[in-house]
Amino acid sequence: MPDRSDHTQATLRQSLQGWLWVAPALLFLVVFVYGPALTNIRFSMFSFSAMSLDWDFVGLNNYLRLWNDPKFMTALTNNAIYAAISVTCQVGVALVLAAVLEARVFPNFSANLFRTALFLPSILPVVVVGLVWQLLLTPTTGLIDQILWETGLASWSRAWLGEPDTAIFAVIFVSQWQWTGYIMALFMVAIRAVPRDLYEAMEIDGASGVQQFWHITVPGVRETILIVTIITILGSLKVFDIVWVMTAGGPNHSSEVLGTMMYRAAFRDDMIGYSSTIATVIFFIALTIGLVQIKLQKDR
């Protein structure tokens, strides 16, 4: 975006005015985001508990400990699986769904209805979604189990949230249920901005819907795909609420993610320095993703 005002180096007096306008926003970010984030790195070098006031400087020992903590690998893997599935569903599937709805396959009225229905879960609080799905997934009495029994798939029935092999996947599924429709709606907006005549031209050439999708839709919304991918990956990194509500990292830490591990270390195990160490790891991963995004956007 060209900036009209950047032609000349501003004088100090001019600058002062500009700085005053951005100062309140900057102040908030420094006090509540950047400042604490940096303080957090300092905390990670200490061992201390909430209860006592003794701080022991331990240097990088917390990091060593984290590296040797088997829960850390579990958490990291779970975050990665979370990201992989989310990108597939929320970018891949959502884009296809959006393309179909925008391709006028359905009458306008039905297309609108479908969009509203798929969008609906995204307006609900994560806590409520987590609790409702916890009830739906309850073994034996839950709706999912009953459906499986009634449809003769009883052998599939299991304690989805209670088994280490399935717990994290059940949580990830719920997250896809909640957000795919939202991302789909985002893509619909993006697709609408792609010039209509491109599609018409290809249609005259006899190209199929699939061909149109690959040759017009995908390149046309490339920018949005990139941003949504980054947002989805960042979201998977910081995921906390849905996991905390549905499994709290259990059973036996099998669905632990970095966020729950951090929260547990601070407020249940009373190891605040260690918790800060986990937060610092989250910080650096987020930073890396951010830098990659900037690099990708510049390369275009």
């Binding site: 073994p139 304690a159 989805w160 949230l161 209670g162 088994e163 059973p251």
Partner: peptide
């Protein structure tokens, strides 16, 4: 124990 004890709350 019943199936899926790890997925059921004590209250349930």
């Amino acid at each position: 124990f019943n199936n899926g004890a790890n997925a059921i709350s004590h209250q349930q």
